[in-house]
């Protein structure tokens, strides 16, 4: 191992310690929030206290929230100005996904209605 490439064991300044603690807290918060969203979703589906249609809607809502939590806390995506280019990429992908998924579902369920139902 050549020393010039390795930034080994430098003293860690206080500002870095604070930054590290803040980022650690972010991961812990993300993990806790994810658990808080996952477990109710599973209990709702398993218990079946609501009618199926409402349960579907509720678990889809919880999933959407959890996806936002993962983006925010694990992938560090936020609305800061310096992130805008990347936010554009992600939002554009979201748009494409929305168009293709909704379009696919629309066409396939429409076809089923026309051709397969009695």
């Amino acid at each position: 191992m050549s020393d010039q490439h390795v930034t080994a064991r430098r003293p860690i300044p206080d500002s870095e310690r604070i930054g590290r603690r803040r980022e650690l807290r972010r991961y812990i918060a993300g993990f806790a929030l994810s658990l808080l969203l996952t477990l109710p979703a599973f209990s709702l589906a398993a218990a079946g206290v609501l009618p199926p249609a409402q349960t579907r809607l509720a678990v889809a809502g919880l999933a959407l929230l959890q996806i936002v939590v993962h983006f925010r806390f694990f992938l560090h995506i936020d609305l800061q100005k310096s992130h805008r280019d990347d936010l554009m990429l992600i939002l554009f992908t979201g748009l494409i996904i929305g168009l293709m998924v909704l379009g696919t579902l629309w066409i396939l369920f429409d076809l089923e209605g026309r051709m397969l139902s009695p």
Partner: peptide
């Protein structure tokens, strides 16, 4: 890390739309 976190996000979709919605008849 980005790849792995993204796979976890895909899994959120799988457990919700495949399993949780699937068990509701």
């Amino acid at each position: 890390a980005l790849f792995w976190h993204m796979l976890d996000i895909v899994w959120i979709g799988i457990f919700t739309f495949v399993y949780l919605s699937g068990v509701l008849a």
